[in-house]
Amino acid sequence: GNMKDKKSVDALILAFDIKRGDPRESAAYIDALGVSGDPRAVAPLATAWDYLRSMILQMGELPGHLQVVRWKILEALSRIGGDQAVRILSEALNESDLRVVEEAVRGLGRLQVRNSVPALQQLASGATGNLLQAIIEALGDIGDKRAVSTLEQAISNPDKYIEVQVSYALAKLGRKEALERLNGFLKGDPGEDKVGLLAAYYLVKLDKTSGLEHLEAMMK
């Protein structure tokens, strides 16, 4: 299958043209290149990223369907990895489009890029909502002890979902009390906040049977 895969990626790379293609078609090619995991796909994705950046400089703002293409490029790069992908994801943390920043954060978490921890910590100080959730989850996935101070500040967040995510990230860093807190969220489920399901998901990510048992019980 390997030779066949190589040929199909070659065909995708040849067919993918951000300048000429219909945005929906481009998005489909980008997804396929990301799924391929082939390092050769990084160069055409990087070229497309640069092209869209130059369009922003000319137009000020991209139409919605092209904004989606930018998120997709970051997601695809994070599935392939490598130095160039990490560089683009790291630079994208400085973008003004928060959805792009969020995708970059998720990508750096997925690739467990330890060098991105200080930038993620800085970003966390002003972040809220989805972006803050993404940062906390990324810090958990990266699992670097430097993140503890940022996570401990976020634990007092009134948003229960964020509290669950912080507990996951701290548990990943070996904090026993955070693991107990996650298990505690299962007890009152579903409850008003409906966070038990999320807590169970993170417990499964931490290889804890309590999470799996909780999910199985809910499905009965």
Rank of each mutant, 00 (worst) to 15 (best):
A76I: 10
A76F: 04
A76R: 06
A76P: 04
A76H: 07
A76W: 02
L77R: 00
L77Q: 02
S78H: 10
S78L: 12
R79D: 09
R79G: 08
R79M: 10
I80K: 05
I80E: 00
G81D: 02
G81R: 00
G81E: 03
G82P: 02
G82K: 03
G82N: 01
G82E: 00
G82F: 00
G82Q: 03
D83C: 01
D83F: 00
D83R: 07
D83A: 12
Q84I: 07
Q84H: 08
Q84M: 07
Q84S: 07
Q84N: 08
A85L: 01
V86T: 04
V86C: 01
V86G: 02
R87A: 15
R87S: 13
R87T: 15
R87K: 15
I88C: 09
I88R: 02
I88Q: 03
I88D: 07
I88S: 00
I88T: 04
L89N: 01
L89C: 03
L89R: 02
L89S: 01
L89M: 02
S90F: 08
S90D: 05
S90V: 04
E91G: 11
E91K: 10
E91M: 12
E91I: 09
E91N: 14
E91R: 15
A92I: 06
L93T: 05
L93S: 09
L93G: 06
L93R: 01
N94S: 15
N94D: 15
N94Q: 15
E95V: 08
E95S: 14
E95H: 14
E95R: 13
S96C: 09
S96P: 06
D97T: 09
D97Q: 08
D97V: 08
D97K: 09
D97W: 14
L98I: 12
L98N: 10
L98H: 14
L98G: 15
L98D: 15
R99C: 08
V100A: 13
V100R: 11
V100K: 12
V100Y: 06
V101M: 13
V101A: 11
E102G: 11
E102L: 12
E103Y: 07
E103F: 08
E103I: 02
E103W: 10
A104T: 07
A104D: 03
V105L: 03
V105C: 05
R106V: 06
R106H: 08
R106S: 12
R106C: 14
R106I: 05
R106P: 11
R106Y: 10
R106M: 12
G107T: 03
G107D: 12
L108N: 07
L108Q: 08
G109F: 06
G109Q: 07
G109N: 11
R110H: 02
R110A: 09
R110I: 04
L111N: 08
L111F: 09
L111E: 02
L111I: 07
Q112C: 11
Q112M: 08
V113G: 01
V113F: 00
R114A: 14
R114Q: 13
R114Y: 03
R114W: 07
R114L: 13
N115Q: 15
N115A: 14
N115C: 01
N115M: 10
